[in-house]
Computed example of a mutant assay.
Amino acid sequence: MINREDVEAAARRIDGRIRRTPLVEAEPGRWFKLEYLQHAGSFKTRGMMNKMLSSAIPEAGVVVASGGNAGLAAAYAARELGVPAEVFVPVTAPAVKVAKLGKLGAKVVQVGNEYAEAYAAALERTDALFCHAYDDPAMVAGNGTLALEISEISDTVLVAVGGGGLVAGVIAALRGRARIVAVEPVTSCALHEALKAEKPVDVRVSGVAADSLGARRVGDIAFELATDAEIDSILVDDDAIIHARRKLWDDYRIVVEHGTAAAYAALISGAYRPAPGERVTTLLCGANTNPADLG
């Protein structure tokens, strides 16, 4: 099982290649980890960089299936390391993410309407290093490095969850040191349903955050860690997510994806109610979005 030592090793490996993103106190006891300022716009760059630096990469380079952010992270890491990258995304992937993939130099292949279909197509590429978007030990350990940067001020960490690659890393880094709360949309809740069923299960995926949190099944690593650590799991609806994203813009001029806003939605909707004096850190983990509707 991945633990803090794995995360610390990843932090040493990727040091100097990722940004140590800002941590700001938005109001007394309420912190934001501004991970959306990471290279390529999300926490996944940490995981992808760790994966590639700890792997033997063939001449064909790397291949990844993604709703968008994992692909951007892989494209960025591959460009920095000088290897080819091919990214499979569903045809429903936001245009802003697809365009950015091209700018980062990746070959983009659009297949199917959901991540699961793009994933199946990517697996057919057997000559390249397959980099799983979330269910990979090196990815999880790399993702968890952001948690090392908040451990001293966090009693509770709110984490938006799709496939579980981020929450797994946070658990590995902070279990026994902070309360970890997984937050998912009602319409895309693979971890929540897995915890209820006591095993990973397929779920239907829809809603405003499906492009980044729309994993049909939670990763085995995340399920194992979440079950063993007995973390909290809560749900928020689309209205709460939309309101949270708008409020981040209105109050702080922070532009994030709907998936990212899910974590903040738990706090401002009352789905999660902190105790008096509890220090809560919300991970704002990705910003690859079209801000046109925030004007």
Score class of each variant (00 low, 15 high):
residue 139 M to E: 00
residue 122 A to D: 06
residue 132 H to F: 12
residue 128 A to P: 11
residue 143 N to K: 03
residue 156 T to E: 04
residue 136 D to P: 05
residue 129 L to E: 00
residue 155 D to F: 00
residue 136 D to A: 08
residue 141 A to S: 15
residue 129 L to K: 13
residue 139 M to F: 00
residue 162 G to S: 13
residue 154 S to E: 11
residue 123 L to G: 13
residue 155 D to G: 06
residue 142 G to M: 02
residue 130 F to V: 08
residue 126 T to G: 14
residue 149 E to W: 09
residue 135 D to R: 01
residue 127 D to F: 05
residue 164 G to R: 07
residue 160 A to E: 02
residue 162 G to Y: 11
residue 128 A to I: 11
residue 140 V to N: 01
residue 153 I to S: 00
residue 135 D to L: 05
residue 123 L to P: 00
residue 143 N to P: 12
residue 139 M to H: 04
residue 125 R to P: 00
residue 141 A to R: 01
residue 147 A to P: 03
residue 155 D to A: 01
residue 141 A to P: 07
residue 138 A to S: 14
residue 159 V to Y: 01
residue 164 G to I: 12
residue 144 G to L: 05
residue 134 Y to W: 15
residue 123 L to F: 07
residue 154 S to M: 13
residue 134 Y to V: 08
residue 135 D to Q: 12
residue 160 A to G: 13
residue 126 T to E: 15
residue 143 N to I: 03
residue 127 D to L: 07
residue 161 V to M: 07
residue 128 A to D: 12
residue 143 N to T: 06
residue 142 G to I: 10
residue 157 V to W: 07
residue 154 S to I: 10
residue 122 A to Y: 12
residue 127 D to R: 14
residue 145 T to S: 00
residue 125 R to E: 14
residue 146 L to M: 15
residue 156 T to S: 09
residue 132 H to P: 06
residue 139 M to W: 04
residue 127 D to P: 10
residue 155 D to K: 06
residue 122 A to Q: 13
residue 153 I to L: 13
residue 142 G to N: 05
residue 128 A to Y: 13
residue 148 L to H: 00
residue 146 L to V: 14
residue 145 T to I: 03
residue 156 T to V: 15
residue 159 V to L: 01
residue 123 L to H: 14
residue 165 G to M: 11
residue 158 L to N: 09
residue 144 G to V: 03
residue 150 I to E: 04
residue 149 E to K: 04
residue 124 E to P: 01
residue 147 A to E: 10
residue 138 A to G: 09
residue 135 D to H: 07
residue 147 A to I: 10
residue 160 A to L: 10
residue 137 P to I: 12
residue 165 G to A: 05
residue 139 M to S: 01
residue 141 A to F: 03
residue 124 E to S: 13
residue 129 L to V: 01
residue 153 I to G: 03
residue 122 A to T: 11
residue 124 E to V: 12
residue 157 V to C: 05
residue 145 T to M: 12
residue 130 F to A: 12
residue 162 G to A: 10
residue 164 G to A: 04
residue 133 A to S: 15
residue 144 G to E: 06
residue 150 I to V: 15
residue 145 T to G: 01
residue 131 C to W: 10
residue 123 L to K: 15
residue 161 V to E: 12
residue 148 L to I: 02
residue 122 A to W: 03
residue 157 V to T: 05
residue 138 A to P: 11
residue 161 V to N: 10
residue 136 D to H: 15
residue 149 E to T: 11
residue 140 V to C: 09
residue 156 T to Y: 02
residue 159 V to K: 06
residue 158 L to R: 05
residue 135 D to F: 11
residue 133 A to C: 13
residue 125 R to G: 03
residue 141 A to I: 05
residue 159 V to G: 05
